[in-house]
Design a protein around this nucleic acid. Sequence first.
DNA 1: CATGCACCTAGACTATGTCTAAAATCGGAT
DNA 2: ATCCGATTTTAGACATAGTCTAGGTGCATG
Lengths: 132, 132
Amino acid sequence: MKAALDLLRDLGVQPTPQRIAVARFVLRTGRHPTADEVLAHVRRTCPTASRATVYNTLNLLVDRGLLRVQVLRGGRAVYDANTERHHHFIDERTGAIHDVPWHAVTVGGTAALDDFEVRDYQVVMRGRKRKH
Amino acid sequence: MKAALDLLRDLGVQPTPQRIAVARFVLRTGRHPTADEVLAHVRRTCPTASRATVYNTLNLLVDRGLLRVQVLRGGRAVYDANTERHHHFIDERTGAIHDVPWHAVTVGGTAALDDFEVRDYQVVMRGRKRKH
DNA sequence: CATGCACCTAGACTATGTCTAAAATCGGAT
DNA sequence: ATCCGATTTTAGACATAGTCTAGGTGCATG
């Protein structure tokens, strides 16, 4: 994983401390943080960071394709650094969201739907994460 | 489809005019209305109906299993009278949500996931509805 | 130093949904 | 019919997520 600094530069975006802090956190974590979780984390190194800046930066990264946004956890938007196609598993107990690799699940029949031209899809699963 | 009045009685719930109006609309429409759409419709016959009552009644029907709630359309909850298992197709242009019959799409591999015990799942598709 | 530009901040604003206190209504007992 | 307690409804306050705006800061350039 490239440094957040370089990633921002590659986008032609000024690498301000606020943007670096957002990018560092959200692109490295394997979790699926909400905007407020990002804000809370960014404030640890950048205490005056505002809500608007965090949202602006997240939306910027989404626009540029480095990040995906999904409305999953009870109607809140979560940001997902995994931009490859994948499915999602939501733990009923904890609310945690886990990525499921694309090829772990097979889906058939979407091309045969008469009424719908399917351009994208994903499987959203719910249940319990197994302990090992 | 039974009358809304009888459905409410079967649930052991007092069939007030407000509840009947909510149930009639939401259980009969094939669309996937948001709470505000339900409220707007209910007010046509029951102009003083309040937001709280609509939410209370919708949540009641969800608890009793007559209705499903999904967070789909841009983070808003939509209510779905189709409580059978089915998938969803979201039209990118209009935002309209369409039901896709369970057997129109096949999903495999969910049982073989090592880390997750999948209790329920659905395929969420996006694209364009075909015109006929 | 003055100007302009990109950025950031605080807070106002909107929208969805929940909660509360008080008013209205219901059903049963008299 | 009337009273009473329980349920329901209402209006509005509140909570939360997210967007927008006005103003301020800092930096580069002339």
